[in-house]
Amino acid sequence: MSILEIKNLSYKYGVGTPFEIAALDNINFSVEKGEMVAIIGHTGSGKSTLIQHFNALLKASEGQVLLDGKDINESRESAHKARFRVGLCFQYPEYQLFESTVYKDIAFGPTNMGLDKAEIDRRVRKAAEFVGLKESMFEKSPFDLSGGEKRRVAIAGVMAMEPEILIMDEPAAGLDPRGRRVILDLIRNYREKTGSTVIIVSHSMEDVASVADRIIVLNKGKVAFNDTVDAVFSHESELREMGLNIPQITKIFSELKKFGFNLSTDVYTVDDAAEEILRYLHKGGN
């Protein structure tokens, strides 16, 4: 059974006013346990609205969100519990830090769960380790840290709840190339170590291509594609029309294929690409 299932979900803003807009329109998909799924769409495609349904922050106008087969809006209690089972880390999470120390800020979620002190401590330390924060930073004020460090503290704050599903909204937004790589690596590492289900929301194909198993493309509140990375990238012109780009490597490979080079197209990193080309050249009898 899928860990998360979205059934006929629609969401409307301003119901009953002349400004009624369907932000989400009949969304259907499911996510398997342990999967790493990317939700892609440009600003305004509805992706941020969509993920807020997964932990009951928003309630769908129509349709259901099933967690382990059960509707999360079944009762007030199940909706509240969904907050802990589905950890949602918003865009620019560093702007939500508030505690006097890094430790306390990471502990905020677990404390709200009503856990005992020892368990909170264990979780804070483990989450800090995942994001690469040293113990020497625990007593610092989060406001004294650098931008990248703040972001990692905020991410740890969500990881410390040890959610079954971790959702990251634009985790690498606004960071420089090295910062981006650090964040994406730590998410990959977190998933490998914990086996958790992870959903990454982004508008950058480059960021998700190398980490996601599957891509769900959202456009104008509807699911446009829901397929493997490779299959989604094959729709280059449609993606372009949706205001999305495809990674340079993919562009090169699909172009070369058009010219009759028999290359595999499921490569997204420079290293894999180089290997594939070299393999082709050796075999091609050049």
Binding site: G87, L88, N112, V158
Partner: peptide
Amino acid sequence: DKIMNAQKARGAD
């Protein structure tokens, strides 16, 4: 609105 949602997502009541 954004901050409230973020803190609710961390279980703030």
